[in-house]
């Protein structure tokens, strides 16, 4: 539609492509920033509700502009670069962490046709890009030249690299059912039945591994406030810190969006417009993440890794095996023979 409009103005193809990319980028940025800001507010309100407090209630009606006020405050704060820091790495880390956080939204189908880039390796692209976050956190932890940061960075690598594996394997079950890595195909395939019903174990594994991937409680060892202050982010101030903070919520949003796409039927749903269905489902996922975070205490690093390698990974492998057998049996039943 956009393409046709632009072409009718007589613009060359390269300009059309560029403008389209910019429009998509702006759209995604607006979506992400608005949601991330709102999520911070939501998290504070939800935790307050769970803890019998009021939460933010001063800025705007019911404190809805609290996050905006916080963002302005952080923008106005002094930007401190420690003298002993590895300066360039320190400066680049917050940007590096934010780029993949935005990039992954390219393959999220917000509605029928509402997708920035319907890649045929969609899910693979998501995982590949999302995993680079590890590097950014490691950079931040190293550059700050702080022992707490370094400990946090080491935990990041151990945790995220480990949990990526069950995450991928859990998605594999869905991919096997659909036979495509394209996110639009995956959503389309869930017209009849959501994959959470066909792949409940995979959903559970995905949920746990995703919690670990985005460093949320009970797997928030990377920041482990009570042990290592703020982990890799300890030395960051002002907007640099805010970028880390925002990227955390951006990641939360993206893993929730992927979960909806893979397991909860994406934008599909009756009566309401598809994009609204998508948002509703994403927020249900996010509330689930928040519920878990504000309920459980933090797990210990060795338990975390043991749980991953000794339980989650074998379970995800079994799930793949089961899915394969299931598909074969289903085909046999449908076609009436092997």
């Amino acid at each position: 539609m956009l393409d046709a409009l632009l072409s009718s103005w007589g613009l060359p193809l390269w300009a059309v492509t560029t403008i389209r990319a910019l429009v998509y980028l702006l759209g995604v940025l607006a979506f992400v920033f608005l949601n991330a800001i709102y999520l911070i507010y939501l998290e504070r309100k939800i935790s307050a509700y769970m803890q019998q407090r009021l939460g933010p209630n001063r800025v705007g009606p019911r404190g809805i502009f609290q996050s905006v006020a916080d963002a302005i405050k952080l923008l106005c704060k002094e930007d401190i670069i420690p003298r002993e820091a590895d300066k360039w790495v320190f400066l680049v880390a917050p940007i590096v962490i934010f780029i993949p956080a935005i990039m992954v939204y390219a393959i999220i189908p917000f509605g029928p046709g509402m997708i920035a880039a319907d890649l045929n390796i969609g899910v693979f692209y998501f995982l590949a890009v999302a995993s680079t976050t590890t590097i950014a956190i490691l950079m931040g932890g190293w550059a700050g030249n702080n022992k707490y940061s370094l400990l946090g960075a080491m935990r990041t690598v151990a945790q995220m690299v480990s949990y990526e594996i069950p995450l991928v394997f859990s998605i594999l079950g869905v991919v096997m059912l659909v036979g495509s890595l394209k996110t639009s195909d995956i959503v389309a395939a869930q017209k009849e039945i959501w994959f959470i019903l066909l792949q409940p174990v995979a959903f559970l594994i995905y949920f746990i591994a995703a919690t670990a991937e985005v460093n949320r409680g009970p797997f928030d060892l990377v920041e482990g406030e009570q042990e290592i202050i703020a982990g890799p982010f300890t030395e960051f101030t002002a907007m640099r810190y805010a970028l880390f903070y925002l990227s955390e919520y951006t990641n939360l949003l993206s893993v929730s969006a992927l979960a909806v796409t893979l397991f909860l039927g994406g934008w599909q749903g009756p009566w309401l417009p598809p994009w609204l269905w998508f948002i509703i489902k994403v927020y249900i996922m996010i509330l689930l993440f928040m519920w878990v975070r504000w309920t459980f205490p933090r797990i210990r690093i060795d338990h975390l890794l043991q749980f991953n390698w000794k339980f989650l990974l074998p379970l995800s492998l079994v799930n793949i095996l089961g899915t394969g057998i299931g598909i074969k049996v289903y085909q046999a039943l449908m076609t009436g023979g092997w």
């Binding site: 803890q51 009970p218 504000w294």
Partner: peptide, 16 residues
């Protein structure tokens, strides 16, 4: 102690 183990919500009950 609950808080030191990141049990944020559990922190509020005794304080209440």
């Amino acid at each position: 102690m609950a808080l030191d183990l990141s049990g944020w919500t559990a922190w509020f009950i005794p304080f209440r």
